[in-house]
Design a protein around this nucleic acid. Structure first.
Lengths: 238, 238
DNA sequence: CGTAGCCTTGAAGGTGATCAATGTTTGTGG
DNA sequence: CCACAAACATTGATCACCTTCAAGGCTACG
């Protein structure tokens, strides 16, 4: 096995960090170790795939660092992003719950360098599926994900600028007092377009206006973008 | 307690029928009886609410007959239907899994006369939450619901006629050999519009074309609508 | 018999799509 | 380190699709 495909395991130290993820709340450390049974850590480069749509899903993964995007392909060739998975999020867990391995309906691609823990299906069957407390935590995650996607659907009828605002709002730290906060996840214009199901050009034109209105800000030409929360909220409220 | 609000319980016979729902697959009958603990049967008229958005959810329900629609309200006053719940489907179960009762983000309204079994939160906490097998079944339902709504999102970029076709396809019995099958759930134009997030007029104009193309059919002016499956599929494929 | 909900049609208008061209940034291999 | 490719960003012009508004008809139901 060469360096490229070398698979490492999590150190004890790292496992202890992971045990603090919300997903594992209320679980003993030795249980968490069981849940990671047979795992392997993978360092994905930018734009690398974890699943391709149609692959039989024999493993799922926990995001350790970085971000993944979950992509559906439309018959017309459009790619639609249905979810962004960040640190502590699970990808493919719902597929593991099926009685036999099934084809993944989505592709999963990294956004920038991303570290994940790949966990085999058997571990899910033996430990995840049988742990009641964990199932409840999983449901919390699902509930949030379902809420978000329902929200997207509800926003469908709003003008594009409002929909962009709504999407960006999910990727800022709202606990800060500051009215101006940076985006915690950098999305390209293309990713915003794919997430909202519109053309890139439309995103660009809408965001240009949002910059002009001071809703979005950029530190003298640097890449990092900031949002003005009160203005953003005002835009969404209407 | 007058006739209007009289609450009845399920007969033994009916419980046995319910025990055959996919949701309860693999569960003993006496377990199913526990899962219904404290339930009450409600006969909803047309357009009656089970939840109103914002209500604190202290119970959930199982659809016995008829149909419910789950509605989200946008800030602009548009109503968006996020799901149709038919026989055997659950409404509000995800809300029960939260540690404390929370406000429902959706309204739930009957479509025609509908019979439901209302089940108190405590029963969920005591019996549903603690039953591993049931949790797995619940996840199956969630998976399907999530798939559907992701599908909707993916279809977003398609022309309206394709999106209508895709929605109708979910409400026909595909096990039949016949190319022409009736819709198992009658949706008004308004409901189609609310489900797809478009204007009623757009639905009407699109469907007029679909009638002209023989994709949709109607028995000499009768209300029951039929779809021509192969043509429907061809439209979706592109 | 009047109201409420749903269906239908037409005309006018706007939002976002499409197409084409070009600039910018990033990463890769010679 | 430079050259080149690939991904990403931007702009303008034109156009299609869907929305909005207004008006009217149909059906069910108390």
């Amino acid at each position: 096995m060469d360096a490229k495909t070398a698979m490492t395991s999590l150190s004890l130290e790292e496992k202890q960090k992971i045990a603090k993820f919300e997903l594992f709340r209320g679980l003993d450390f030795n249980i968490v170790e069981c849940l990671l049974e047979g795992h392997s850590v993978k360092q994905l480069k930018h734009r690398e795939f974890f699943y391709l749509a149609g692959d039989i899903a024999t493993r799922f993964c926990l995001v350790l660092d970085g971000a993944l995007k979950l992509i559906r392909h439309s018959p017309r060739g459009d790619d639609i992003i249905v979810h962004f998975a960040l640190q502590g999020d699970l990808v493919g867990a719902l597929l593991m719950n099926q009685s036999v391995p099934i084809a993944s309906p989505i592709s999963v691609k990294s956004m920038g360098p991303t570290r994940i823990a790949c966990i085999p299906r058997s571990t899910f069957q033996n430990h995840w599926r049988t742990n009641l407390h964990l199932q409840n935590n999983l449901n919390q995650i699902l509930y949030r994900r379902m809420s978000n996607i329902q929200d997207d659907k509800t926003m469908f009828t709003s003008p594009l600028k409002v929909r962009i605002a709504n999407l960006l709002l999910r990727h800022v730290d709202l606990t800060k007092e500051d009215p101006i906060v940076p985006l915690s996840l950098t999305l390209t214009r293309q990713e915003l377009a794919d997430s909202l199901g519109v053309a890139v050009e439309s995103i660009i034109r809408s965001m240009r206006e949002m910059y002009a209105e001071g809703i979005l800000l950029r530190e003298n030409d640097r890449a990092q973008e900031y949002v003005h929360i009160p203005k953003l909220l005002k835009l969404i409220e209407g």
